[in-house]
Design a protein around this nucleic acid. Sequence first.
DNA 1: ATTTCAAGTAACTTGATGGTTACTTGGCAG
DNA 2: CTGCCAAGTAACCATCAAGTTACTTGAAAT
Lengths: 216, 216
Amino acid sequence: MARPARTSGVSLRNPERTRERILSAALKEFAANGFAGARVDAIAQRAAVNKRMLYHYFGNKEHLFREVLRLKMAERQAWAETLSGDPAESLAFWFDAACRDPDWVRLLEWEALQEANRRLIDEKKRRAATNRGLERIRQRQTRGQVSAEFDPRHVMLAMRSLTMFPAAFPQLTRLIMGRPVSDPMFQKDRTAFLKRFAAAFQPPPARSSAKNDLAK
Amino acid sequence: MARPARTSGVSLRNPERTRERILSAALKEFAANGFAGARVDAIAQRAAVNKRMLYHYFGNKEHLFREVLRLKMAERQAWAETLSGDPAESLAFWFDAACRDPDWVRLLEWEALQEANRRLIDEKKRRAATNRGLERIRQRQTRGQVSAEFDPRHVMLAMRSLTMFPAAFPQLTRLIMGRPVSDPMFQKDRTAFLKRFAAAFQPPPARSSAKNDLAK
DNA sequence: ATTTCAAGTAACTTGATGGTTACTTGGCAG
DNA sequence: CTGCCAAGTAACCATCAAGTTACTTGAAAT
């Protein structure tokens, strides 16, 4: 039952490794070209695997695509859970994540464009993760770190927008900023901006009364 | 030289109309499926035009795609110029525009994914339009309507992010908000949120001194 | 009226591409 | 040792889709 674990190197037959190779090649190909643009032959070649194996393990192109998406999503969900509370920190963290791993953003984008109508891949898990995120924002609100005047859903949507947009629209970002998104200079400046801008989510500095503390 | 202007209906030959039909069909097809996913035959069919005409007028699929993009961009640029100053107003306006015309956002998205590396379509004009937009923000800053502490480029990027994101990522938006982007309820709520949130761009209410009025 | 050319049509070519067939081979259970 | 099946290979096929060829036709200009 256990892997043979050849003393030197890997055995010629190695289903797990092959599967991994295909998935990793598929991730690159799909992120780069989307579903319609991706070429099954290209994936096989990248993976240095016979094309037939791809069908052996995943059935067809679409199944493979969905599996790639599912894995990436799961990876990110795990990250999301490790986050503490501060909006400034979250903004910086997610912006950094988007810059470091543009493939992830691109996959989300391909998904948005393609599966627009269809039900989401892995919807249940993603909805649960989102709800946990919303709960975290509510906690910050009760702790007074985030303004209670805002609906947590709107806050989360705003934060996602601010962090993902540059990686999602590098051409527009470059047009506006004059630098490519990949430029460390841009990333540094943007992080600084986001940290300051995070103040927008904080409660106003106790103006006169404090009557609307429990607003939705 | 002038159009014949048949007394009743349109003449059988009508190059302008045909060109229009093709462009409008292409817009829909490209917005729906992207460049790689779009089918030339589908465009011809949608336009109720012989496929050959498409090559007659536009040379090939890619030229047609670029022409479609160019036209949409130009349309939006014109809109942008009509805008007055207030961030709250701009946010609401552009958010509404994105919701009303998801095809436009989708085209930008396809462009982002496909032409990632290549030079932008119509880059010169778009850069100029962007610069005019930045200039308008600077004016607002000197008038004290927008905080002078922010780099105008970062402000513009933030505003674009906030307005375009929902239309660009309807699946994530729905996950977060619980409603589809097309839902008027969502659009109303979001507009209200954005209007309030626009305060984030305003200068702080004159705390102690007013020394940094000319920043950047 | 006749010429001329853009506008328009139908059928075809050619290459790419997703998926399959038919086969071989490594390695474990019995 | 041997039968068996998952893992793996090479060659193939059917289809689809971009782009072309070769033709016809409407109507403006002379």
